[in-house]
Design a protein around this nucleic acid. Structure first.
Lengths: 353, 353
DNA sequence: TTGTACGCGTTATCAC
DNA sequence: GTGATAACGCGTACAA
């Protein structure tokens, strides 16, 4: 086997073999312009024979676009995001767009390099889950005229198209549900990240408390150490919440309700409660967020706030596609899909007393 | 705001602005060749001022490589693959390589289009989880000289570099553990996909049976309907296993052991057992595969076969990188990492009788 | 140290 | 219907 650095065949190769010009070959392969059926077939046959594959870089260079989308996520092992990715991947593939994916791991520096990569490749659009550390990278992206839509989290100051979830409403619903089924006092478990989703959920809890005339002071907000900004590839997991729940639930009054920022946190609470001899939902009610694939099958089933991931992913791609296809840049919209409360065994109504 | 189709600045733009040649600018930006410090600074300043970003397509065209890797997976919502993606993304980013990702969803046609995309973009290497429907796409990829490594599943007939898990050994260990802790008879739950991982695990079970002198006939293999080949973006989930377990576990003798092909299947078994009034591990022992993030926190904790995902991902990228950096094409190796049995509450030793 | 010339593979605009 | 020719943005030889 010789080590000849053999470049793949080009349209020029085909042209020579069939005694034509590169130009003709180009049109034949692409079906545009006018070509005589005979030459067309001859060219196509030769192309197939050679195993010709068009060079995307060359095409991108002259066309100025690569038919590709940038997808920037924080952490793919978050079930929410992995499902989101699935939807987006499928939908953009259907439209013939390539997906260029990067994970930022809640790290601003990674975010910047992701933007850099998208700029270099002249992506046609970007779908972004921002870390919310700074708007700078995204301003840069938008300043370069790249259509961009935020998913799940808005930017800090800059206004940008957004499609997400009404976390505030979800937490509001969850809180009302816990209160009305007799759970009190409440404990809220959230990751210790300064992101809008966390803030929204806490706001929702407070609104519900106000509506039911409960004192916000009696609700403790517990921040769970996030492992996401370490240099680890650890997936989301319940460990920290489990440890914290052990401490918080030890001397808690019977009937306490727990609101968890995601279902992994809730699962940590489950385990801690079990080890402390507390039964769910009698001694402690638990409500999660996300309806992760495992949640319905826990014992008891986990009451959780379900987000319409599919709709969000679809909406994001659709918006980008419209913009790519020439829709005029309109003032940014913020669309927040309503989550729905999935009531299961973990918050069954308890008899008061 | 005028609709001038304004292309981004190029090195030529910079050159004109500073009164130099494109060539000089090129070297200044890239730090190669020799440039006078003065002009260098002037060029860099102008580049920054313009917000210049090199055009990756143009560079790729002349260099013949795009510094990108193709990653082909079946289903990103599988926790194993999402973690694998995390590792690979991080590691390739560290090496300055872009990741081009596609999901095949166990579908051969998607696989072909993924290969097509990689070929067009002239990716420098490919990391692949094959659907094992046909070798054709991968033969095409390899025939084009693209370094390629299979993860987790080998190809059908063609020999190709592989890094994976010794599923056979894992299932063997799990089976021995179940038998030796008094569980009998056994029921094996596997997805109804014709993939090597499933076959390997079943082989491992049989080997263990042989070693302990148990009759393979008494072990029932239950195939769980896979939702993966539908046109759905459903994540992995326990539903089908749950339904099937309801049927299979109804009249089962006390002490039955269940071996599940992944932890989601195991979770379905958990729920069915609970509803049937069977307690784990007294009435039925359960062993999973994958050690998904939730498994340690179930009640009881799920005994499961843990795969070294990190090692596998790292090994895959490293191998690709070596090949890209010019390592001579050697005969393919098959490296299978040993999984480790995580013994937890779901298979606690039961007193015989 | 800098400039000239050319090539990468493809598409587009014109002639013919 | 087909063929020159130029252009996309950048890198590499080589000459100045």
């Amino acid at each position: 086997m010789t080590l000849e650095e053999t470049r793949p065949p080009t349209i020029k190769t085909i042209a020579q073999n069939v005694g034509m010009t590169a130009n003709t070959v180009s049109r034949a392969l692409r079906g545009s312009g006018s070509i005589s059926p005979t030459t067309r077939d001859k060219i196509l046959a030769e192309a197939r024979r050679l195993g010709y594959v068009p060079n995307a870089a060359a095409r991108a260079l002259v066309l100025g676009s690569a038919n590709s989308l940038g997808l920037v996520m924080t952490n793919p092992s978050n079930p929410f995001y992995s499902e989101l990715f699935s939807v987006i991947e499928r939908r953009s593939r259907k439209d013939g767009y390539l997906l260029q994916l990067s994970a930022t791991e809640e790290n601003l520096q990674n975010e910047e390099s992701a933007v850099d990569a998208m700029l270099r490749w002249r992506v046609d659009g970007a779908i972004v889950v921002a870390t919310q550390g700074s708007d700078a990278p995204w301003q840069r992206l938008m300043a370069n005229g790249v259509p961009m839509i935020c998913v799940n989290r808005p930017l800090l100051e800059v206004d940008c198209e957004l499609v997400g979830i009404d976390y505030e409403q979800g937490a509001y619903d969850a809180t009302l549900h816990l209160l009305d089924s007799g759970h009190w006092p409440l404990v809220v478990f959230e990751e210790d990240l300064e992101i809008s989703t966390v803030h929204s959920r806490i706001a929702g809890v407070h609104r519900a408390l106000g509506v039911r005339g409960r004192a916000a002071e009696e609700v403790s907000i517990v921040r769970i150490e996030s492992l996401r900004d370490n240099d680890s590839t650890l997936p989301w997991q319940p460990q920290s919440a489990y440890e914290e729940a052990h401490r918080r639930l030890a001397g808690t009054p019977r009937g306490t309700g727990v609101i968890a920022g995601n279902d992994f946190l809730a699962l940590g609470v489950y385990r801690a409660a079990y080890e402390l001899g507390l039964s769910i939902p009698e001694d402690v009610g638990v409500c999660g967020q996300g309806d992760h694939p495992f949640s319905a099958f826990l014992t008891p089933g986990l009451t959780t706030v379900r987000s319409p991931v599919q709709d969000i992913g679809a909406a994001a791609v659709d918006w980008i596609m419209e913009r790519i296809r020439g829709a005029p840049p309109a003032p940014p919209t913020h669309r927040r899909f309503a989550p729905t409360l999935q009531v299961r065994g973990s918050t069954m109504a308890r008899s008061t007393g």
